[in-house]
Protein backbone atom coordinates (compact mmCIF):
# COMPACT_ATOMS: atom_id res chain seq x y z
CA UNK A 1 0.00 0.00 0.00
CA UNK A 2 2.72 2.46 0.98
CA UNK A 3 4.66 1.61 -2.14
CA UNK A 4 1.56 2.18 -4.20
CA UNK A 5 0.99 5.62 -2.70
CA UNK A 6 4.62 6.55 -3.19
CA UNK A 7 4.46 5.42 -6.77
CA UNK A 8 1.29 7.39 -7.34
CA UNK A 9 2.85 10.52 -5.89
CA UNK A 10 5.87 10.18 -8.17
CA UNK A 11 3.45 9.65 -10.99
CA UNK A 12 1.64 12.84 -10.02
CA UNK A 13 4.83 14.86 -10.33
CA UNK A 14 5.48 13.36 -13.72
CA UNK A 15 1.97 14.34 -14.87
CA UNK A 16 2.45 17.88 -13.61
CA UNK A 17 5.78 18.09 -15.39
CA UNK A 18 4.18 17.02 -18.67
CA UNK A 19 1.31 19.44 -18.16
CA UNK A 20 3.80 22.24 -17.61
CA UNK A 21 5.55 21.49 -20.90
CA UNK A 22 2.33 21.17 -22.87
CA UNK A 23 0.74 24.34 -21.58
CA UNK A 24 3.99 26.24 -22.09
CA UNK A 25 4.25 25.12 -25.71
CA UNK A 26 0.57 25.58 -26.50
CA UNK A 27 0.67 29.18 -25.36
CA UNK A 28 3.75 29.91 -27.44
CA UNK A 29 2.25 28.29 -30.51
CA UNK A 30 -0.91 30.36 -30.29
CA UNK A 31 -0.72 33.50 -32.43
CA UNK A 32 -0.38 36.86 -30.72
CA UNK A 33 2.57 38.45 -29.03
CA UNK A 34 1.98 39.71 -25.49
CA UNK A 35 4.40 42.58 -26.04
CA UNK A 36 2.31 43.73 -29.01
CA UNK A 37 -0.88 43.35 -27.04
CA UNK A 38 0.52 45.56 -24.30
CA UNK A 39 2.01 48.16 -26.63
CA UNK A 40 -0.94 48.47 -29.03
CA UNK A 41 -1.10 49.80 -32.60
CA UNK A 42 1.86 51.59 -34.07
CA UNK A 43 4.07 51.19 -31.05
CA UNK A 44 7.62 51.56 -32.27
CA UNK A 45 9.87 48.55 -32.66
CA UNK A 46 12.03 49.81 -29.79
CA UNK A 47 9.11 49.95 -27.37
CA UNK A 48 7.99 46.43 -28.29
CA UNK A 49 11.54 45.14 -27.99
CA UNK A 50 11.91 46.80 -24.60
CA UNK A 51 8.72 45.13 -23.39
CA UNK A 52 9.86 41.77 -24.73
CA UNK A 53 13.12 42.06 -22.85
CA UNK A 54 11.32 43.10 -19.68
CA UNK A 55 9.08 40.04 -19.92
CA UNK A 56 11.96 37.75 -20.78
CA UNK A 57 10.36 36.94 -24.12
CA UNK A 58 13.59 37.69 -26.01
CA UNK A 59 15.27 34.57 -24.62
CA UNK A 60 15.13 31.20 -26.41
CA UNK A 61 12.08 29.07 -25.59
CA UNK A 62 14.08 26.44 -23.70
CA UNK A 63 15.63 29.07 -21.45
CA UNK A 64 12.23 30.67 -20.86
CA UNK A 65 10.84 27.30 -19.90
CA UNK A 66 13.59 26.48 -17.44
CA UNK A 67 13.42 29.88 -15.81
CA UNK A 68 9.73 29.23 -15.24
CA UNK A 69 10.30 25.65 -14.12
CA UNK A 70 12.89 26.69 -11.53
CA UNK A 71 10.40 29.17 -10.14
CA UNK A 72 7.72 26.51 -9.82
CA UNK A 73 10.06 24.20 -7.94
CA UNK A 74 10.39 26.95 -5.39
CA UNK A 75 6.60 27.07 -5.14
CA UNK A 76 6.44 30.36 -6.97
CA UNK A 77 3.99 30.59 -9.88
CA UNK A 78 5.39 33.95 -10.91
CA UNK A 79 3.68 37.29 -11.37
CA UNK A 80 1.03 38.47 -13.78
CA UNK A 81 2.21 40.50 -16.77
CA UNK A 82 -0.76 42.81 -16.47
CA UNK A 83 -1.15 43.44 -12.77
CA UNK A 84 2.32 42.29 -11.70
CA UNK A 85 0.66 40.69 -8.69
CA UNK A 86 1.63 37.27 -7.36
CA UNK A 87 -0.30 34.59 -9.23
CA UNK A 88 -0.33 32.24 -6.25
CA UNK A 89 -1.84 34.93 -4.06
CA UNK A 90 -4.49 35.67 -6.65
CA UNK A 91 -5.35 31.98 -7.13
CA UNK A 92 -5.60 31.33 -3.40
CA UNK A 93 -7.86 34.36 -3.07
CA UNK A 94 -10.18 33.07 -5.78
CA UNK A 95 -10.05 29.41 -4.88
CA UNK A 96 -12.60 29.62 -2.02
CA UNK A 97 -15.07 31.27 -4.44
CA UNK A 98 -14.75 28.45 -6.91
CA UNK A 99 -14.72 25.82 -4.19
CA UNK A 100 -17.89 27.10 -2.54
CA UNK A 101 -19.69 27.06 -5.89
CA UNK A 102 -18.39 23.58 -6.77
CA UNK A 103 -19.58 22.15 -3.47
CA UNK A 104 -23.06 23.52 -4.00
CA UNK A 105 -23.17 22.37 -7.59
CA UNK A 106 -22.22 18.86 -6.42
CA UNK A 107 -24.84 18.93 -3.70
CA UNK A 108 -27.44 19.89 -6.29
CA UNK A 109 -26.16 17.20 -8.68
CA UNK A 110 -26.25 14.55 -5.95
CA UNK A 111 -29.64 15.43 -4.49
CA UNK A 112 -31.33 15.17 -7.88
CA UNK A 113 -29.13 12.81 -9.83
CA UNK A 114 -28.64 10.08 -7.26
CA UNK A 115 -32.31 9.34 -6.40
CA UNK A 116 -33.27 9.71 -10.05
CA UNK A 117 -30.73 7.05 -10.97
CA UNK A 118 -31.93 4.68 -8.26
CA UNK A 119 -35.57 5.08 -9.18
CA UNK A 120 -34.75 4.51 -12.84
CA UNK A 121 -32.89 1.34 -12.03
CA UNK A 122 -35.47 -0.09 -9.68
CA UNK A 123 -38.37 0.79 -11.97
CA UNK A 124 -36.61 -0.02 -15.18
CA UNK A 125 -38.55 0.75 -18.38
CA UNK A 126 -41.26 2.49 -16.40
CA UNK A 127 -42.55 5.94 -17.25
CA UNK A 128 -40.42 7.39 -14.42
CA UNK A 129 -37.33 5.76 -15.88
CA UNK A 130 -37.93 7.29 -19.29
CA UNK A 131 -38.61 10.73 -17.85
CA UNK A 132 -35.53 10.81 -15.67
CA UNK A 133 -33.25 9.43 -18.36
CA UNK A 134 -34.64 11.93 -20.85
CA UNK A 135 -33.88 14.73 -18.41
CA UNK A 136 -30.42 13.32 -17.88
CA UNK A 137 -29.80 13.29 -21.62
CA UNK A 138 -31.06 16.86 -21.85
CA UNK A 139 -28.81 17.83 -18.96
CA UNK A 140 -25.68 16.52 -20.63
CA UNK A 141 -26.44 18.12 -23.96
CA UNK A 142 -27.61 21.53 -22.82
CA UNK A 143 -25.06 24.32 -23.36
CA UNK A 144 -24.22 25.71 -19.93
CA UNK A 145 -24.01 29.24 -21.26
CA UNK A 146 -27.54 29.09 -22.58
CA UNK A 147 -28.89 27.40 -19.48
CA UNK A 148 -27.27 30.06 -17.29
CA UNK A 149 -28.76 32.93 -19.27
CA UNK A 150 -32.20 31.23 -19.28
CA UNK A 151 -32.09 30.74 -15.50
CA UNK A 152 -31.14 34.40 -15.11
CA UNK A 153 -33.94 35.56 -17.41
CA UNK A 154 -36.57 33.47 -15.67
CA UNK A 155 -35.63 33.49 -11.99
CA UNK A 156 -33.54 36.66 -11.95
CA UNK A 157 -35.49 39.04 -14.16
CA UNK A 158 -39.01 37.78 -14.91
CA UNK A 159 -39.87 36.28 -11.52
CA UNK A 160 -37.33 38.43 -9.70
CA UNK A 161 -36.68 35.82 -7.02
CA UNK A 162 -32.94 35.60 -7.18
CA UNK A 163 -30.00 37.93 -7.87
CA UNK A 164 -28.34 38.20 -11.28
CA UNK A 165 -24.79 37.37 -10.37
CA UNK A 166 -21.86 37.83 -8.05
CA UNK A 167 -21.38 36.23 -4.65
CA UNK A 168 -22.87 38.83 -2.37
CA UNK A 169 -24.91 42.00 -2.86
CA UNK A 170 -22.60 44.98 -2.88
CA UNK A 171 -24.70 46.69 -0.21
CA UNK A 172 -24.08 44.02 2.37
CA UNK A 173 -20.86 44.31 4.29
CA UNK A 174 -19.00 41.16 5.20
CA UNK A 175 -15.66 40.87 6.89
CA UNK A 176 -13.63 38.24 5.04
CA UNK A 177 -11.99 35.71 7.35
CA UNK A 178 -11.71 32.45 5.45
CA UNK A 179 -13.05 33.89 2.15
CA UNK A 180 -15.68 31.12 2.19
CA UNK A 181 -18.58 33.55 2.44
CA UNK A 182 -21.01 31.13 4.06
CA UNK A 183 -18.53 30.28 6.79
CA UNK A 184 -17.47 33.90 7.18
CA UNK A 185 -21.04 35.08 7.61
CA UNK A 186 -21.64 32.36 10.23
CA UNK A 187 -18.48 33.20 12.16
CA UNK A 188 -19.28 36.89 12.19
CA UNK A 189 -22.98 36.20 12.92
CA UNK A 190 -23.98 38.14 9.84
CA UNK A 191 -27.41 36.80 8.93
CA UNK A 192 -28.07 39.10 6.01
CA UNK A 193 -24.81 38.12 4.40
CA UNK A 194 -25.50 34.43 5.02
CA UNK A 195 -28.88 34.36 3.32
CA UNK A 196 -27.73 36.71 0.60
CA UNK A 197 -24.80 34.40 -0.18
CA UNK A 198 -27.15 31.43 -0.29
CA UNK A 199 -29.44 33.25 -2.71
CA UNK A 200 -26.49 34.06 -4.93
CA UNK A 201 -25.41 30.44 -4.92
CA UNK A 202 -28.64 28.89 -6.15
CA UNK A 203 -28.70 29.71 -9.86
CA UNK A 204 -25.01 29.18 -10.62
CA UNK A 205 -25.10 25.90 -8.68
CA UNK A 206 -27.97 24.68 -10.83
CA UNK A 207 -26.25 25.78 -14.02
CA UNK A 208 -22.95 24.24 -13.02
CA UNK A 209 -24.50 21.15 -11.42
CA UNK A 210 -26.71 20.13 -14.33
CA UNK A 211 -24.10 18.18 -16.26
CA UNK A 212 -22.73 16.38 -13.17
CA UNK A 213 -26.33 15.66 -12.16
CA UNK A 214 -27.00 13.97 -15.48
CA UNK A 215 -23.78 11.99 -15.21
CA UNK A 216 -24.55 10.85 -11.71
CA UNK A 217 -28.09 9.82 -12.64
CA UNK A 218 -26.88 7.73 -15.55
CA UNK A 219 -23.99 6.10 -13.76
CA UNK A 220 -26.17 5.36 -10.71
CA UNK A 221 -28.75 3.73 -12.92
CA UNK A 222 -26.34 1.49 -14.79
CA UNK A 223 -24.33 0.60 -11.71
CA UNK A 224 -27.49 -0.25 -9.77
CA UNK A 225 -28.78 -2.37 -12.65
CA UNK A 226 -25.52 -4.27 -12.61
CA UNK A 227 -25.77 -4.98 -8.92
CA UNK A 228 -29.47 -5.82 -8.99
CA UNK A 229 -28.69 -8.77 -11.23
CA UNK A 230 -26.14 -10.26 -8.86
CA UNK A 231 -26.78 -13.54 -7.05
CA UNK A 232 -26.64 -12.07 -3.57
CA UNK A 233 -29.49 -9.74 -4.40
CA UNK A 234 -31.58 -12.66 -5.58
CA UNK A 235 -30.70 -14.46 -2.35
CA UNK A 236 -31.68 -11.48 -0.25
CA UNK A 237 -34.97 -11.16 -2.09
CA UNK A 238 -35.76 -14.87 -1.76
CA UNK A 239 -34.99 -14.67 1.96
CA UNK A 240 -38.06 -12.46 2.05
CA UNK A 241 -36.35 -9.18 2.90
CA UNK A 242 -38.49 -6.15 2.09
CA UNK A 243 -37.62 -4.38 -1.15
CA UNK A 244 -36.34 -1.15 0.37
CA UNK A 245 -33.96 -3.01 2.70
CA UNK A 246 -32.58 -4.97 -0.22
CA UNK A 247 -31.97 -1.80 -2.16
CA UNK A 248 -30.63 0.33 0.68
CA UNK A 249 -28.49 -2.23 2.51
CA UNK A 250 -27.42 -4.63 -0.18
CA UNK A 251 -27.58 -3.05 -3.59
CA UNK A 252 -26.69 0.59 -2.97
CA UNK A 253 -23.51 -0.03 -1.01
CA UNK A 254 -22.11 -2.22 -3.72
CA UNK A 255 -23.13 0.15 -6.46
CA UNK A 256 -21.35 3.06 -4.82
CA UNK A 257 -17.83 2.63 -6.22
CA UNK A 258 -18.37 3.75 -9.81
CA UNK A 259 -20.69 6.48 -8.58
CA UNK A 260 -18.04 7.81 -6.22
CA UNK A 261 -15.45 7.76 -9.00
CA UNK A 262 -17.67 9.79 -11.28
CA UNK A 263 -18.58 12.20 -8.52
CA UNK A 264 -14.95 12.58 -7.46
CA UNK A 265 -13.63 13.28 -10.94
CA UNK A 266 -16.46 15.66 -11.75
CA UNK A 267 -15.89 17.56 -8.55
CA UNK A 268 -12.20 17.90 -9.34
CA UNK A 269 -13.08 19.26 -12.76
CA UNK A 270 -15.52 21.77 -11.27
CA UNK A 271 -12.90 23.04 -8.87
CA UNK A 272 -10.70 23.81 -11.82
CA UNK A 273 -13.01 26.71 -12.38
CA UNK A 274 -16.15 26.57 -14.43
CA UNK A 275 -15.30 29.12 -17.06
CA UNK A 276 -18.72 29.45 -18.66
CA UNK A 277 -20.77 29.42 -15.48
CA UNK A 278 -18.44 31.84 -13.76
CA UNK A 279 -18.58 34.19 -16.73
CA UNK A 280 -22.38 34.20 -16.98
CA UNK A 281 -22.85 34.68 -13.25
CA UNK A 282 -19.94 37.13 -12.81
CA UNK A 283 -18.48 34.76 -10.26
CA UNK A 284 -15.03 35.95 -9.22
CA UNK A 285 -13.48 32.50 -9.37
CA UNK A 286 -10.57 30.80 -11.04
CA UNK A 287 -12.43 30.37 -14.33
CA UNK A 288 -12.99 34.07 -14.92
CA UNK A 289 -9.41 34.74 -13.85
CA UNK A 290 -8.07 32.41 -16.55
CA UNK A 291 -10.37 33.79 -19.25
CA UNK A 292 -9.28 37.36 -18.60
CA UNK A 293 -5.67 36.22 -18.72
CA UNK A 294 -6.16 34.45 -22.04
CA UNK A 295 -7.67 37.59 -23.58
CA UNK A 296 -4.75 39.67 -22.35
CA UNK A 297 -2.12 37.09 -23.43
CA UNK A 298 -1.01 37.04 -19.81
CA UNK A 299 1.19 33.93 -20.27
CA UNK A 300 2.35 33.48 -16.68
CA UNK A 301 -1.20 33.63 -15.33
CA UNK A 302 -2.51 31.07 -17.83
CA UNK A 303 0.45 28.77 -17.21
CA UNK A 304 0.26 29.10 -13.46
CA UNK A 305 -3.49 28.63 -13.29
CA UNK A 306 -3.52 25.59 -15.55
CA UNK A 307 -0.80 24.00 -13.48
CA UNK A 308 -2.71 24.81 -10.31
CA UNK A 309 -5.86 23.24 -11.76
CA UNK A 310 -3.94 20.17 -12.93
CA UNK A 311 -2.56 19.82 -9.43
CA UNK A 312 -6.04 19.98 -7.90
CA UNK A 313 -7.38 17.36 -10.28
CA UNK A 314 -4.43 15.03 -9.81
CA UNK A 315 -4.61 15.25 -6.03
CA UNK A 316 -8.37 14.66 -5.98
CA UNK A 317 -7.98 11.61 -8.20
CA UNK A 318 -5.24 10.24 -6.01
CA UNK A 319 -7.36 10.73 -2.92
CA UNK A 320 -10.31 8.95 -4.51
CA UNK A 321 -8.10 6.04 -5.55
CA UNK A 322 -6.62 5.67 -2.11
CA UNK A 323 -10.05 5.83 -0.54
CA UNK A 324 -11.10 2.80 -2.61
CA UNK A 325 -8.62 0.61 -0.88
CA UNK A 326 -10.32 1.38 2.39
CA UNK A 327 -13.86 1.22 1.04
CA UNK A 328 -13.44 -2.05 -0.78
CA UNK A 329 -11.11 -4.61 0.79
CA UNK A 330 -11.11 -6.62 -2.43
CA UNK A 331 -9.11 -3.95 -4.22
CA UNK A 332 -5.39 -4.56 -3.93
CA UNK A 333 -2.76 -2.33 -5.37
CA UNK A 334 0.36 -3.88 -6.66
Amino acid sequence: MRNYILKRILNLFFVLFMVSIIIFLLLRLAPGDPAKVIAGEHASKEIIEEIRIRLGLDKPLITQYFIWFKQILRGNLGTSIRSRDSIMKELLLRFPNTFELSVFAMIFAGIIGFPAGIISAVRRYSFLDYVSMFIALLGVSMPVFWLGIMLLMIFGVKLDWLPIGGRLSVYIPLKPVTHFYLIDSLITLNGRAFFDTLKHLILPSIALGTIPMAFIARITRSSMLDVLHQDYIRTAKSKGLPQNIVIRKHALKNAMIPILTTAGTTFALLMGGAILTETVFSWPGIGTYVVQAVYARDYPVVQGSVLFIAFLIAVTNLTVDILYAYLDPRIHYQ
Binding site: M153, V157, I164, G166, T279, V280, S282, V291
Partner: peptide, 20 residues
Protein backbone atom coordinates in the same frame (compact mmCIF):
# COMPACT_ATOMS: atom_id res chain seq x y z
CA UNK B 1 -19.96 54.70 -5.86
CA UNK B 2 -19.52 50.99 -6.47
CA UNK B 3 -17.99 49.53 -9.60
CA UNK B 4 -19.39 46.02 -9.85
CA UNK B 5 -17.43 43.59 -11.98
CA UNK B 6 -19.65 41.92 -14.59
CA UNK B 7 -17.61 40.84 -17.59
CA UNK B 8 -20.36 39.52 -19.82
CA UNK B 9 -22.35 42.29 -21.57
CA UNK B 10 -25.57 40.22 -21.56
CA UNK B 11 -25.31 39.62 -17.83
CA UNK B 12 -24.64 43.34 -17.34
CA UNK B 13 -27.78 44.21 -19.19
CA UNK B 14 -29.85 41.73 -17.16
CA UNK B 15 -28.56 43.24 -13.92
CA UNK B 16 -29.36 46.72 -15.22
CA UNK B 17 -32.82 45.78 -16.45
CA UNK B 18 -33.58 44.40 -13.03
CA UNK B 19 -32.15 47.41 -11.23
CA UNK B 20 -29.37 45.60 -9.39
Amino acid sequence: LIFKVIDDPSARLLALTKGE
